[in-house]
Each structure stands twice: as C-alpha cells, then as structure tokens.
Write a protein that binds this DNA or RNA. Structure first.
Length: 238
DNA sequence: AACGCGCGAACCATTACTTCA
DNA sequence: ACTGAAGTAATGGTTCGCGCG
C-alpha cells in the first residue's frame, strides 16, 4: 500500500509490513525461548531521493480465543475427559479413512495450550511431545494448534498495525496538504510582489544573504541599501 | 569445497467442520 | 428449522536449513 506524491509536492508516503519472527522464513525456532513474534510495519515518508523508515511494533493483541462455551458439564468432568482422552495411531488412521474429523479441544486443553503459548510461541519437538502427553492429544494436534495460534496472533497484530498506520497516513496527508497550501501561498505572494522593496511591513526584516546583515523597517538605510531585485544576484548587492 | 538429495520444521492459504445469533 | 457468519482444527503445498554421501 502506498501513497505516492499525494499533493504533487514530491513527497511520497508508503507503508508495509515485515516480520521479524527470526526473519519469518527462518525455520529454526527463535533463539530466545520466549519465541516472541513481532511484526514490524514500516512507515516510509520519502522526499524525492531521501528515504527514511520508521519501524513500529506494538503488541496490543487481546486474547479472545477461548471465549465460547463449547462443552457441556463442569470443569471437573472436563478435566476427566481431558485425562481420559486417548489418541492412538489407529485413531489417526481412522481419521484418514473417514475423511476429515474435527476434534474440538476442550476448554482445559485450550487453556493449557494458551498458557504454553504465552511462554513460547513456538515449540521444539521435546516441548511438543511433553505438551501432547500432558493434554492427551497427538503431537501433531499441538503443532497445528500452535500454527493456527501464531496465524491468529499475526492477523490481529496486522489489524492493529494497519489501524495505526491508517492514522499515521491521515495525519501525514493533512500535514502534507497544509505544507502544500503554504507553498502555494508563498508562491502567490512572490509573484504578486516581485521586488523586495515592495514587501509589506511584516516582511521588511530582510537578511542580506551575502553579508547576513539584518535590516528592519526602522533602521536607517545604509548608505548603500542591501536591497536587491529578483533578477539581480544577491551577492552583487553588497 | 561444491553439489545434490532427503528430511524435518515452520509457514501460508485454503478447506471443512462447529457453533451461535 | 434453517441459514449465514465467525471461529478454528486440519490439510496440502512450499520454502528453508541441515546433515550426509
């Protein structure tokens, strides 16, 4: 997404996203065991060739994943079910033969997974095995859950970042418009009064670019005025 | 050292199923 | 009872890093 030269002033605005979850495509788990995912939107405001980038990162993702009452019965019965739930290779074969079968995770299972995800968003094989045993589910299920969870986190973060950047964009567009208007006004002023001698009182504070001497309206005119016309070189005036 | 190959892990887009308003 | 939307478990394909011959 980009906004190129909105007001014709040579200013260009653009933004995009780049992930820094160990460079996103890195298949290795993050070095830091926290395994934090961070997605960095980059906001770029460029004036012709000059380019600057600002990396932003926020983590305002609110966890709303376990919000549905998906199971009947009390927590206790659920725990029992978690602990009695066994998945074997035969089950896996069954799934394959019967087509896709969706096993809804229980509240307790989801909560445990969520808890684990808070600690590290990626799992090494050992952690996966351990968690799978703890939850009485297949390691593959744990893996899939984490995958989907990461995807959800990323989506939420992208939404948040997008909102933020939209606001940035609006602000910058306004700013840009203001500056453009100012430029137009100054241009108009310059055209209307080609000679600096005709400048109104507010603009009579002049600086000679050559000697850098400031002269205001009240000051006695120097023997040789430092005024110069639009077609004369400033340096020639001194 | 360079290369090709196989494997495992992670990601992504998509599908399929479940739940709820 | 039906239906569409939202949520999410699962699948298939792709890419990458690594070890090995």
């Amino acid at each position: 997404m980009g906004f190129d030269d909105i007001c014709g002033t040579g200013l260009a605005l653009g933004f995009g996203f780049s992930s820094t979850a160990n460079n996103q495509r890195s298949r290795k788990p993050p070095a830091d065991k926290g395994g934090s995912l961070s997605f960095e939107p980059s906001l770029t405001l460029s004036l012709s060739k000059d380019k600057s980038a600002d990396h932003l990162s926020s983590s305002t993702y609110s966890n709303a994943s376990v919000k549905r009452e998906r199971d009947i019965g009390s927590e206790e019965t659920e725990v029992e079910r978690v602990l009695s739930y066994r998945v074997s290779d035969e089950d896996l074969d069954d799934d394959v033969s019967n087509g896709r079968k969706k096993l809804r995770l229980t509240k307790v299972q989801s909560a445990l997974l969520e808890e684990s995800f808070k600690q590290h968003s990626t799992l090494n094989p050992k952690q996966k095995q351990h968690l799978a045993r703890k939850l009485n589910v297949r390691p593959r299920q744990v893996e899939v859950w984490f995958q989907n969870r990461r995807a959800r986190t990323k989506l939420k973060q992208t939404e948040v970042d997008c909102e933020f950047l939209k606001k940035c964009c609006e602000t910058l567009t306004d700013e840009n418009k203001k500056l453009y208007k100012e430029v137009q006004e100054l241009k108009a002023l310059k055209l209307a009064q080609p000679l600096y001698m005709q400048l109104p009182a507010a603009a009579t504070l002049t600086v000679c670019p050559s000697c850098e001497r400031v002269a205001d309206a009240g000051e006695k005119a120097p023997t040789k005025p430092h005024f110069y016309g639009p077609f004369t070189s400033p340096s020639a005036a001194c």
